[in-house]
Design a protein around this nucleic acid. Structure first.
Length: 399
DNA sequence: TCTGGGGTCCTAGGACCC
DNA sequence: TCTGGGGTCCTAGGACCC
């Protein structure tokens, strides 16, 4: 039996939070974003959108389009708090919930809605209750898969509800421009258009006719897209809480830096932030990545495995400095960032074999352990019984 | 027009081991 | 001494999303 998956997307979420803080903003053209160097629009109110302002647009451009716009830098703590309210609200209906970002989630409502006489009305009531209880507005997609629910929530904004049944997939998806397909972005869509694929329907026709060119072009994505576009694919709402795999910070410099000393100032600040956040999350990482973006927007990523998992500022910064020294060629740098990768929970680290001083020795000891086991099987009376014995003897010069 | 900062996942080549 | 093939880890880069 098909599941009933909801995708709930909060409308102009950051702006809505600001309106709740300051009701006089309601109905006005509000822009959330940084106005500094390279500042872009994070999100904006529907009134601002009427002037052509869009997410991702440079703020100076947005202010040209909409001269009386109200610029707000943004209160991120407030957004986090309202986001939690949103999730807690949804949990009252179903515990099978997956938070996809700060302002959207998937919910498995199969059990709740399967015996409901009028499920659409039920969801409408849910939407109204969210507004009443939290002040937040949302759009909802209802479908048998996560992909279709996501596509649905995007179709009517604000305060829309869109049902996509599997039998309606062709009718509802095919007319949409190819850019609307979740997962096809600004690099892939122009190439698809070059191939004569302008709508989701064009893509579906090619895929379902077993066209080999499109199969080759899409690579591994082909099989997933084939399911999605025909109304199949994942309907499993992942209830695991978010568990970061990397924590990073980056910043665009007030002006391009042209020497390593200047870069180090920002690198240090970013490393401090990373350490602070990693400690707050109780995470330690075993790889440090340096990110530099030059004045031509070329991004250079350099990462290095480190010996011991850490979240200490000194170690992170030190590794960043090493990567900088090894890779910086003196060109003007626009952005500096550092990321701690391969994160694990601090308490989950298996205690290191403390008698070994470093990783090489651990590796060597493991190899030796296997050898000893084999020797013990074959010969009686071996000189040493464990890898530790071997290393100790080696250190003492007796081996 | 001129492009932030936070992430995730995928690919591909080379090193290394068996 | 030269050889194959498979698996895993590391690293760099790219696409995408909000």
């Amino acid at each position: 039996m098909s599941k009933i998956i909801l995708h709930i997307d909060l409308n102009a979420f950051f702006v809505r939070c600001e309106e709740l803080l300051n009701p006089s903003l309601e109905g006005k053209p509000v822009i959330i974003g940084h106005s500094g160097r390279g500042g872009i629009v994070s999100t904006c109110s529907y009134a601002a959108r009427k002037y052509g302002v869009k997410s991702g647009m440079p703020t100076y451009k947005a202010l040209q389009l909409c001269k009386n716009a109200i610029m707000i830098y943004g209160h991120f703590d407030l957004y986090q708090k309202k986001s939690k309210e949103f999730i807690n609200f949804v949990k009252k209906y179903s515990n099978i919930i997956e938070q996809a970002s700060i302002d959207e989630c998937y919910v498995d409502m199969t059990k709740v809605l399967q015996n409901e006489k009028n499920p659409l009305n039920f969801v409408k009531q849910m939407q109204a209750n969210l507004l009443k209880e939290t002040g937040l507005k949302c759009s909802i997609g209802i479908a048998p898969t996560k992909f279709l629910a996501k596509m649905g929530s995007d179709m009517k904004k604000p305060m829309g509800i869109t049902v996509i049944r599997r039998k309606d997939v062709r009718k509802m998806l095919d007319p949409l421009p190819i850019e609307d397909f979740f997962g096809i972005g600004k690099k892939t869509s122009p190439r698809l258009r070059e191939m004569g694929i302008n709508t989701i329907g064009d893509l579906a026709k090619l895929i379902n006719s077993d066209d080999q060119d499109i199969k080759r072009f899409l690579g591994k994505f082909y099989f997933g897209i084939k399911e999605w576009i025909n109304g199949y694919g994942s309907d499993t709402v992942d209830t695991e809480p978010w568990d970061p795999k990397q924590i990073g910070h980056s910043t665009t410099l007030p002006r391009d830096a042209e020497d390593a000393d200047e870069i180090k100032i920002y690198l240090k600040q970013m490393a401090e932030e990373v350490s602070k956040d990693a400690k707050a999350e109780n995470k330690v990482g075993s790889s440090v990545q340096l990110i530099l973006k030059d004045n031509e927007f070329k991004v250079i990523n350099r990462s290095k495995r480190i010996k011991d998992k850490t979240n200490e500022f000194e170690v992170i910064y030190e590794e960043g400095l090493k990567l900088l020294a090894a890779n910086y060629d003196g060109r003007p740098i626009r952005l500096v960032g550092i990321t701690l990768q391969n994160l694990v929970n601090k308490d989950e680290i298996v205690e290191q074999l403390s008698i070994f001083d470093n990783y090489e020795e651990v590796k060597e000891a493991n190899a030796v352990r296997l050898l000893i086991a084999e020797l013990n099987r074959q010969i009686k009376g071996a000189d040493f019984k464990t890898a530790g014995d071997y290393l100790r003897e080696k250190k003492n010069g007796t081996h």
